[in-house]
């Protein structure tokens, strides 16, 4: 129970970094932390006591994995989510480099001032 709450605390801290910080790299870091917390929450929900990985090894009875195996569905979805996060991060960093090239700063309010 407390673990779910701590995952949500991590989520809130990522959102705070995203909203309140002015530096663009800091904003990207906030998005990354938010992604991590969501992945953590989804995998935590799928766990069961004494659970083992949902992989059938040689010499393992099938009933064992049916009884003890953790939920494979959130794991599969989180796996795709991690790789998508990498692609989106590359896109965000390239936009940042473009902005830096144009305005010579990472500060968001500075960029607003220069543009206006």
């Amino acid at each position: 129970m407390i673990l779910y709450f701590l995952a949500l605390v991590l989520f809130v801290m990522g959102l705070y970094c995203l909203v309140a910080k002015k530096n663009i790299i800091k904003k990207i870091i906030g998005i990354v932390i938010t992604e991590y917390s969501i992945n953590l929450f989804l995998v935590l929900v799928g766990w069961r006591k004494g659970g083992i990985a949902p992989i059938l090894l040689k010499g393992m009875q099938k009933s064992e994995i049916v009884e003890k195996g953790v939920d494979p569905l959130p794991q599969a979805l989180v796996l795709t989510s991690i790789v998508i996060g990498l692609g989106v991060l590359a896109l965000m960093v390239s936009i940042c480099l473009r902005l830096y090239e144009k305005y010579k700063t990472f500060d968001m309010s500075e960029i607003n001032r220069l543009r206006g």
Partner: peptide
């Protein structure tokens, strides 16, 4: 948490 696939990735 029993998720070695995600841990590697």
């Amino acid at each position: 948490l029993g998720a070695p696939d995600i841990a590697i990735t």
